[in-house]
């Protein structure tokens, strides 16, 4: 590298060093597509026994709703549970290789940091606050073409969500 490139590197490294460390984020080999700004708080993957229920929706002491998905079964049951917890939701589980045609909704722009915490294991955990869904917003959970819960994509839609039109994954974006 020439002098300019070395000097520039020195200046840029100062900029990097002055920045706050990013939120802890583990690497994940498979794809969990998550719309960063609109997804609230923490997503975690943990190990659970194989015969666990397909999902659990729980209100926590701080009024946030914790959604735990272990298997892609009973999408309509999950939708009803989320709505009982105050989160309007659209849930679409498609077979591997398929995804919903995009665009199907306008993504909400939120000021939430995209903190994600992922560990290996067949569970997707999302935590949301019902207040985030005021004003016609809805949680959209859909598979993005992969297999199992790792292919789940969580987004917050601002306004109506079009019905899922299955297309081949890869052609869907």
């Amino acid at each position: 590298m020439n002098t300019f490139e070395e000097r520039l590197l020195t200046e840029l490294k100062k900029v990097v060093a002055e920045r706050e460390p990013a939120p802890a984020r583990t690497r994940f080999a498979w794809r969990l597509a998550l719309v960063p700004a609109a997804v609230v708080a923490v997503t975690a993957m943990v190990l659970v026994p194989h015969d666990a229920p397909a999902y659990a929706v729980q209100r926590q002491p701080d009024d946030t709703i914790r959604v735990e998905i272990t298997r892609l079964d009973d999408a309509s049951g999950l939708k009803r549970s989320l709505e009982r917890a105050g989160i309007p939701a659209v849930v679409d589980y498609l077979p591997p290789g398929k995804t919903c045609k995009k665009p199907r909704f306008r993504e909400a722009t939120g000021g939430y940091p995209s903190t994600m915490e992922l560990r290996s294991g067949p569970v997707a955990i999302f935590t949301f606050h019902p207040n985030e869904f005021a004003g016609g917003k809805a949680l959209v959970l859909q598979t993005s073409g992969g297999e199992g819960v790792a292919s789940l994509e969580a987004s917050i839609a601002d306004g109506p969500v079009a019905p899922c039109e299955p297309v081949d994954a890869g052609a869907g974006r």
């Binding site: 490294k13 990013a22 984020r25 690497r27």
Partner: peptide, 11 residues
């Protein structure tokens, strides 16, 4: 993910 806050990774 690290290059935004780790000078060694950025380098």
């Amino acid at each position: 993910a690290r290059i935004g806050h780790d000078p060694i990774a950025f380098e």
